[in-house]
Amino acid sequence: MANPNAAGSNVAGPNAAGMTRRERYEAQKRRRGMVVAAISTLFVVVALVVLVPMTPGWEKVQKSFFNGAVLAKSFPKLLEAFKINIMIFAWSAPAIAILGLLIALARDVKSPALFPLKIFGAVFTDVFRGVPVILTVYLIGFGIPGLGLPRPWNSPYIWGSLALILTYSAYVAEIFRSGIDSVHHSQRSAALSLGLSERQVMRDVVLPQAIRNVVPSQMNMLIALQKDVSLLSFIGPVEIFRQAGVFKSLLANFTPYVGAALIFLIVTIPATRYADYLMARQSRERR
């Protein structure tokens, strides 16, 4: 009646398809999961596509936010303006990395002679983390050129970038500091026991590990910076957000803003994915 061979293969060994009992179960579970996910996604999409156009204002919104003709007309100019965002980002980011690291190190100094530096570091991070970015941009971007500096020193590019650099350095410094704290103290012990000085231990042993540990977090700061460059539009530079505003007034249509958002997403989504990938890899390594 019962075939002993068949029974045996059912219990433990691979079956005809070369799968174990566990693998078959997992495969079935996976298939069922995918079907459920597909159905629920389809349901949500259909609901959106059907329901949203049924709202009373949909036609107006579609015309003023999703207007293909306006998008085609404004998109090249928006891309052009985005170059200014990239430019400001490109010179601010390295300055932020350097200043942030210096502030982080300043807050860790032990020598009494350098105590003022330590105080400065603490005050700096408190102040610039405590004030909204837009306020810093206004105060520095309008205030310093107000001193009547000659060209090019009254440029909003310079002072706006400085405002971003100061604000972001404060955050980046705190991340570096948490990175320094994350290096196990036994690493310090080992380095000191070899006769290295405190400064050498920091430079050769602690910092390289600390910086590596915080790369994913700093990636997130870069993404945030990329977006906040737009705040400089409030003090003058015609970057993408300002350019979209110009088109909005010109064409009496909000689609250029959607276009600007799309351009941001083209840059930030890959960057965000990459940061997530780095973080996932790091947590795998820690395990």
Partner: peptide, 19 residues
């Protein structure tokens, strides 16, 4: 520093520099 350079130490958890 000078003393530590003359006295070596080896730890339970090796403490090699991973980077």
């Amino acid at each position: 520093q000078g003393v530590r350079a003359r006295i070596g130490m080896v730890f339970q958890s090796y403490n090699l520099f991973p980077h």
